[in-house]
Design a protein around this nucleic acid. Structure first.
Lengths: 213, 213, 213, 213
DNA sequence: TATGAATGAGATTTCATTCAT
DNA sequence: AATGAATGAAATCTCATTCAT
């Protein structure tokens, strides 16, 4: 496809950005998340993004080579948050203390999901397993699961394959968040957290399904 | 657009189809599923579908007004299967018998997912709650959950909100299937079923995490 | 930059073309030459080409991935003609017979140049030595010179390095044609051929500058 | 556009330039030649030029209204050199003395070409005969040829049309230089000069193909 | 019933030029 | 005198849909 070799606007990943430039970039990233949230990754047009960011069309390409690259940048941001979160995963006890710790960790996860959900979901849209894209996506959840696996191995009373069990739970959390955020189901945030914590605690850590009240 | 659902009104559905026509239509529907699987709904182009079906471009429009209508037709097919499946959901006991019944029901669900997963996933991509589309998608899972809710209400020993619990489980099942089918995780089908059954049984029906062996 | 993988219109190099398709392709190639002639390669827009070919914009991309690919196809055509021509280069004698044979061979060369001059000139515009482009360009003239070198080696009475001498002549022929065709100088075709033949005959093959009349 | 040639009226040419300004301008002109050399006139972007000059984008427009004006400034520089060179063209004798004088004059021409070749070549790219541009280009070579014509008329022993003969030689010189500079052929500078001098001397001035050695 | 070819609206991308500091 | 950022017009390219055979 042989695009011309010298690129005009070196998408600003490389160059040093002044305050104004950083502000513009932030505006574009935020507009990106919002647009992906509203239309999904594929349906989102660069035009939607720049309109939302109140930025001219040409400026977009000063910062990103294309929509995919903006997405990849967002991806890095989530990955960082997620890995940090996974590192903080506590040892879960069977009793009420374990339940509460689990719940409060899940709260943080839901917060990340609330901010970056559209980005996380976008991976689903994409051709699977193929691109840099897919690989990156896997990595986030994999790293995430890795930690869970350790915990389950230590805490769990049942004899499930820890890897599979962790995956199942991550899947549930992700999907459930999706349903709630996508308003396909109407549930308060607290109720969601109670349920997530409870099911996870009971299903994986041998907890006794203690819910508040 | 905006055709009634019952009578989709796709070009070829008003007409009587001869054997050859039916074969062509089947080829297109199958190619549709495969293409959605590979690229996702939005990224799938009519051109991809016809190439895969080894059908000429023009012929496509003899059978479907556009990509969406092909999708809607597939949707009908899944919906039929899913509702049938939901109707067959058994009462789940706490003991090993309950576990086995749950597992064998999940087996059938996984089979449906293996065939129609891409179609089920496609809803996710679409702007949510908006289209005829989204509504239909919701309906399948809602109907599906409705039955689960009943069962949980009857069987569950814990005091979770049955609606939320059902949703969490459906979410897990769907997502887990997705991971496995997308080969983002390498797990045998039997292991997957063991885990799904076990986690669900323990997490929702008070089962004791009995796994075979 | 990471275009989608499945291409819509496989630029028609591969596919079998029916009569109509071949006609359209020919129209595009011809319009290409004319447009390059008028505006030069770089200044030529795809839009100019399709307008001249009276073809819709989209159709262009059914046949060529972009302007460069159309150019490359033309390039193949010239290369074929030029190599054929080089193979026919006669042994040049010192006397009038040699002059006439040289002149008639040059006539054929000028005809090729009249048809494909714009394509030959376009190489000049392009980044030099770098692209597939440049290499291809070199090859045509190189192959061309190779044959001349042989002839000069056999016929020439002087002790010039044959390679350099051949190159100098090819250069002169090419450039002179360019001036004449570009109407930067007003000379009849016959006068041009007389001069080319005469200067070449004298300068390289030891001829006595015999011109008719 | 359409500024008078004598007073180019480029932003910085009306102003008095301090040492720093002159340095910046020189950097831009040099970067211009290099960029035209590398990409050709049309493909060269203002961005390429400023990057090479290590000058900011905005600064360019402090000195030149656009790319064309930078080019026109360069053009003035070459034109001056070339006209001076043409004025110095010596009368060429048939014998060795003529050969040597011709050769040493060609040496100077090649030096100019080495410095400004890209600028000279750029004319070729442009739509011919049309712009202020093209006219200027023609003028350089025309003035140049005019002198040669005089010399050939005086010196030549053959009965070629002097105008055509002169043109042919100019063409050869220009083209040959191009090939060599473009490294499409690998020849030492001395060999190139020997050949150019020899072919020209023999082909046009009745020389006896004397080469050193 | 089927096909290859053509279309054109809309999306993406480039880049000369202007602006604010 | 210089700069980084922004702009928008114009070009490229894609692809759902229609057409003629």
């Amino acid at each position: 496809m042989a695009r011309s070799i010298g690129q005009l606007g070196t998408p600003a990943q490389g160059r040093e950005l002044r305050a104004r430039g950083r502000r513009t970039m932030r505006k574009l990233l935020d507009a990106g998340v919002e647009t992906f949230a509203k239309r999904g990754y594929h349906a989102a047009r660069v035009d939607d993004i720049v309109k939302r960011a109140k930025i001219s069309h040409g400026t977009f390409y000063l910062y990103f080579a294309n929509k995919e690259e903006l997405f990849l940048t967002l991806t890095q941001e989530v990955a960082d948050e997620m890995v940090g979160l996974a590192d903080d995963f506590p040892a879960i006890e069977v009793g009420p203390k374990g339940y509460l710790e689990l719940r409060s960790w899940l709260t943080r996860l839901v917060e990340v999901y609330e901010r970056y959900g559209p980005v996380l979901r976008a991976w689903t849209e994409t051709e699977i397993g193929a691109s840099e894209f897919g690989r990156l996506g896997t990595d986030v959840w994999t790293e995430f699961s890795r930690v869970l696996i350790e915990q389950i191995r230590r805490s769990s009373t049942n004899d499930l394959d820890p890897q599979i069990a962790a995956l199942a739970v991550v899947a549930m959390i992700e999907r459930f968040n999706y349903y709630v955020l996508a308003r396909q189901v109407d549930v308060s945030r607290d109720d969601m957290l109670d349920t997530l914590a409870s099911v996870t605690h009971a299903g994986l850590f041998g907890g006794a399904n203690e819910t508040p009240g």
